[in-house]
Amino acid sequence: MIELTDFSCGYGSKTVVPSCTLTLRDGELTALLGANCSGKTTLLKGICRRIETNGVCRIDGLSHTAPPARIAKHLSYIPQKSGMTLSCTALDAVLMGAHVHTPLFSDYSAEQKQKAADLLRQFLDISPETDFLTLSAGQQQLVILARSLMQGANNLLLDEPDSALDFSNKHHVLSTIRDVSRTGKCVLLCLHDPNLALRYCDRLLFMRDGEIFEDITLFEPDTDKLNAAFRVLYGDVHIEHVQNRPFLFRE
């Protein structure tokens, strides 16, 4: 669970998210929707304490100002793209998630290696020895997702996991993320595609100019409220139900 109270964050003296009070629950997949520069990534970075913050941010009751090794046991951040630039097997990339649970001078245990191999097999049909750098963007996202599960954190933040993915990979990655949230994890992700959010998420947070102006749970949602929120973000759009699923269409 992630709890924000009067939380603000920004870069240096520039405050991007002025005030945010919010509770993200376990087992809930929440999407943060907004145009470019609306403050979505900044809010995620603020929760991770990668930028200047004020106010209260608690992750499973632990302040986000705790040392990295303590925070990493509760919170996992999945960037748009991993910063991995040197060759590394997919298995070892997943194993990096176990670093926080392994004594400083020890190598990963046989059990950890087995768990990493199982997670990799669960998400991807590739050899564990495959070089991470040779994987497609979608496959890399899934490896990083497996790494965050290896980390064992209860709370997951994902920054635009659908960016740079083709149609089928987007759906594969999002359905995998939804399966992960169903195991009781609290998941918050930034998304650009509203239809992906409508299809896979439980809750939508609408953001503009650094403020969350609407918070809608998608279990029997108020369509008028949903339409109004989407119109603030995207202009002339409306929701229609196709095969009992809501879709956003431009007028």
Partner: peptide, 18 residues
């Protein structure tokens, strides 16, 4: 093990507990 993680971007490595 830690040296390998230092090859990642600072934020990414820090979020993995380093």
């Amino acid at each position: 093990k830690t040296v390998s993680l230092l090859s990642l971007q600072t934020d990414e490595a820090q979020m993995l507990g380093v």
